[in-house]
């Protein structure tokens, strides 16, 4: 069971502000869904089964050729100081 406190911690890890009633509702729904996910436990999988992953030869990767992007990349930033983007202070 995922407790309300655990949901609060998850919400903090994900930086999503939630009120207490929201946390309670989510805890309830999340438990139901996680219980459903738990059916994966019954699936007997040997260590020989590789998790699904795509792979490619390294030669297919990008050449080291620099290209400057032409458009103004700051057009969507709202808090600026000169060409710096403003952010909250850390700490």
């Amino acid at each position: 069971m995922v407790s309300v406190e655990e949901v609060r911690h998850l919400a903090h890890l994900a930086r999503i502000g939630m009120k207490d009633e929201e946390l309670r509702l989510y805890a309830e729904q999340i438990n139901e869904i996680i219980e459903y996910f738990n059916m994966l436990d019954e699936l007997e999988i040997g260590n020989d089964v590789e998790p699904y992953r795509m792979s490619r030869g390294y030669k297919e990767m990008r050449d080291d050729i620099p290209v400057a992007f032409p458009a103004d990349m700051l057009s969507n930033a709202k808090s600026m100081k000169g060409r710096f983007i403003k952010a909250p202070k850390m700490g």
Binding site: A11, H12, A14, R15, M18, I30, K86
Partner: peptide, 30 residues
């Protein structure tokens, strides 16, 4: 961002996701 603590800044802004998105982010984090 002026004078806002950084965790509060993120958490306040990100509370504007809709309910289903928040649910899936929390589950994915879990």
């Amino acid at each position: 961002p002026d004078g806002v603590a950084w965790n509060e800044f993120y958490s306040t802004i990100r509370s504007n996701f809709g309910s289903e998105v928040k649910r899936r982010i929390i589950l994915g984090t879990y």
